[in-house]
Nucleic acid binder design. Structure first.
Lengths: 228, 228
DNA sequence: GATATAATTTAGTCATGCCTAAATTAATTT
DNA sequence: AAATTAATTTAGGCATGACTAAATTATATC
């Protein structure tokens, strides 16, 4: 059985690897709120366990064994998030923090029961894919919101889950995974996006989202639409 | 915030204190599966935090601050046991082990939501009382089953929760907290109890329970009844 | 190609929380 | 009361996983 710290390292390496090949010691240190020297120490340990590939000064990658463990932890995390949200009504912006603690101690049996209760879901409350029991991730194609143009329509696919304030901000506009919206305007010079959110009643709610916010939103089903 | 080890020490001291005043280093060590020398070390640390009273060679007791923390952990544990049992169908004999890991990481918010879901229960699946949010324990009067005599009727109040095999044995007779039974016979020389368990249909199921088992069963509502 | 800067690793420390072995204190016999 | 036995504490070690400071390696600049 791995320590909690080792599991956190593997999970973090996996996530950082997704956004570009090898992971540097410094980036990993910053992500884990730890000093680079501490990272070097842990990587040595993980290497002896054949969970990572690490050449001095060259960055880290996961071995297939390391990746399997990372995906297991990520599955725990995302199933827990969804369970807390659906079964216990824990707010959207705090499920991440709760799951962060629980993911290391939940048993496979309890996890299987939550999975069944939830009907074998494939995405968590933030739209991130839940790996299956065998570590297979089914990821729908999506784009960063910053790539959208005026007049395009789309559906929110996923949002970053780490910043509770950001999540509360999105919730105030009903911008959840699955929410459809249309880009009304994009101000120049990295300016804000003005969007219209599809609502049940006739008139769509408008929202103005700063650039920093749009970097944390990922969308799918992008289509060009007629300007109103 | 306390470490998990410190929380386990406080919880254990509380439980051992219930069965007789001061707790000795050796007993605590055995209970925690740790060497006596390790206990001495931890007690020193807990003493500097004013969580225990400890005089060399004289045993430990909890301070009021230590007791408050112990009761908080016990509340977490018992609510978790009941939640796992009721909400997720985790078997009777494994909820203890699961809760043992979760009790240290569950948040007050999630706990409050489980409490609400369960309808503010007062006992866990083994019949142990759940302390309330303020650490108040309401304990119904009960007796060890070994004090029963032939012909007496009673209701199971509580059973030990630590041994899964014992719990499966009791479950095979439907002996849960709340189950009523009558003592048909007690064999001499510390022999087994033969009991008749009240069932919905006409004929009561009979069970033979060895002495070791009866030490782990606690009963209430004891009454003398006519022998059949 | 030499040098300045940035990133990474090594070396040595510290707190936890466990261990074993030896010393001490308490309790029990004789 | 002295001696044996049992319980407890002290002393010293070890693994984990963090830290700082110094040394090393890589990268960018001139």
């Amino acid at each position: 059985m791995l320590t909690q710290a080792a599991e956190d390292y593997l999970k973090s390496i996996y996530k950082l690897q997704e956004k570009g090949g090898k992971v540097s010691t410094g980036v990993l240190a910053q992500y884990l709120n730890v000093k680079p020297a501490s990272v070097t120490g842990m990587l040595k340990k993980l290497k002896t366990m054949n969970l990572v590939n690490h050449e001095r000064y060259q960055g880290v990658t996961l071995t297939s064994a390391g990746k399997a463990i990372a995906l297991e932890i990520i599955r725990h995390h995302r199933l827990l998030e969804l369970y807390l949200f659906r079964a216990l009504g824990v707010p959207w912006d705090s499920v991440h923090e709760e799951a962060e603690k629980l993911e290391h101690v939940i048993s496979e049996d309890v996890e299987a029961r939550m999975d069944e209760f939830l009907g074998y879901p494939t995405t968590d409350p933030h739209g991130a894919p839940i790996p299956d029991k065998n570590g297979v991730v089914t990821q729908k194609a999506y784009f960063q919101m910053t790539t959208l143009h005026k007049g395009q329509s789309c559906v929110v696919a996923e949002v970053s889950d780490t910043d509770p304030a950001l999540l509360r901000h999105l919730a105030s506009f009903n911008l959840y995974p699955g929410t459809a919206f249309r880009v009304l305007d994009i101000a120049p010079f990295e300016g804000p996006f003005t969007i219209e959110i599809a609502t049940e009643n006739e008139e769509g709610q408008q929202a103005i989202l700063g650039r920093e916010v749009t970097k944390h939103i990922f969308v799918a089903d992008v289509q060009d639409t007629e300007p109103t």
